[in-house]
Amino acid sequence: MPGNGKLHYLMNKKHLLELKNVSVSFSPGIYAIKNVSVSIKPCAITSVIGASGAGKSTLLRSINRMHELYPNIKLSGEISLDGKNIMEMKPIEVRRRIGMVFQMPNPFPAMNIYQNVLSGYKLNKIYLSKAEKDEIVEKSLQDVALWDEVKNSLNKSALSLTVGQQQRLCIARTLALQPEFLLMDDPTSSIDPICTNRIEELMYRLKDNHTIIVVAHNLSQASRISDYAMYLEKGELVEYDISNVMFVAPKDKRTERYITEQIE
């Protein structure tokens, strides 16, 4: 049963993310991503699977234009957000609408927990009243199930938290800006199973209001959490389907071989 947020999304048919013939190259003729065309389903979790070097993280990073930090990386094709090419939008606008959570937790070391949650506002020079700040901090930390653990130590350094808590803090920091999309680059790779479970639950709750694309190295995790899955091999999109269908009866031999290898 979809939540209200999902209904709102579907009824308004907004926030659509489409990739058309997207290729990414690190040097001329060497492609990390080759002609990927896909329409991301809104209010759902889409997992990106594939072997190391298949281009999963590159694909994710190109969606919010993080690739532009490295001048040698070239992108061709079109990534559109609500029908508008993101390359014609301001990168700042793209990144605010499409939040990103990295593989390793990366709270800002010089800020405390409270400041970390609000860092998006501070960095974007959006001024808030004390009451607004408190509300955003509490809501964002509650969203990631961290509020009860840190509510009495908001002034402590973010680095005093465990790795799992730091990762949830980073998700809270991203959520505080209310992005429409969440890109998650294998967010549970560095944390223990209990925290992994919490983050998976969190993603499941978030999908009511957010479209989530997650890179998953762990196939069982991908099958557990995702509604849709795409399999990349050597930069090519081999298959994109409902995850239950793909994991049970993949249409392409290459997907089947990869899934079989991972299970074995």
Binding site: N64, L69, V94, R95, N106, F108, G120
Partner: peptide, 10 residues
């Protein structure tokens, strides 16, 4: 550090 700041739209 820089990437995570930029990823927040800063």
């Amino acid at each position: 550090l820089k990437e995570s700041g930029l990823a927040l739209g800063a």
